[in-house]
């Protein structure tokens, strides 16, 4: 490969800027897995059908096998490694754990990323909405029932937390300002 065929591109992966020297046709999934060592993103079909390689690019789910790394330059990329904070699982990961929504686990990263996007767009989906949002991801073990349960459970959990969060904390000073118009 000639030197001029190498492109320098900076990906912001899970909040960290990662400069990369890649061939222009390096797939995003290969750059993540092989150049950055983030092997949580799995490669199933490499033709955009199975959904295993789903990551978020600027908050939108994409198939990282159908995108070049250079196309993601400057974008915020979230992979499955970016979901948990330290030892604390992301609520959707915790729900997958509780509901036993995985068996071999190969497809799980893709389902998690698709689920995260769904819950961000629609925090209270119904079952049909969950099934539609996950329709681009294939699982060969579970039969999907527990995966759908997990996403619904995560949505329920988040809804409960929101209800508690919405209990108004009374800010007396602000109330006075609002009432008296300063």
């Amino acid at each position: 490969m000639h030197q001029e065929d190498i492109v320098i591109v900076t990906l912001k992966v899970n909040g960290v800027e990662r400069p990369l020297a890649v061939e222009p046709r390096r797939l995003l999934c290969d750059a993540l897995r092989e150049d950055l060592g983030l092997t949580g993103t799995n490669l199933g079909c490499e033709q955009g059908v199975c959904g295993s390689c789903t990551v978020l690019v600027d908050g939108e789910s994409v198939r990282s096998c159908l995108m070049f790394a250079v196309q993601a330059g400057g974008c915020e990329i979230t992979t499955v490694e970016g979901l948990a904070s330290g030892e604390t699982l992301h609520p959707l990961q915790a729900a997958f754990w509780e509901k036993q929504a995985l068996q071999c686990g190969f497809c799980t990263p893709g389902f998690l990323m698709a689920g995260v996007e769904l819950l961000r767009r629609n925090p209270e989906p119904d079952e049909a909405g969950v099934r539609a949002a996950l329709a681009g991801n294939t699982c060969r073990c579970t039969g999907y029932e527990h995966i759908v349960d997990a996403v619904l459970a995560a949505a329920d959990g988040a809804a409960r937390e929101r209800t508690f969060a919405e209990e108004p904390e009374v800010d007396v000073a602000a109330e006075v300002v609002a009432r008296e118009g300063r």
């Binding site: 955009g48 939108e60 789910s61 994409v62 949002a133 681009g136």
Partner: peptide
């Protein structure tokens, strides 16, 4: 068309 991931791109 496709799936959410495909429709996003």
């Amino acid at each position: 068309v496709g799936s959410p991931q495909i429709r996003n791109r």
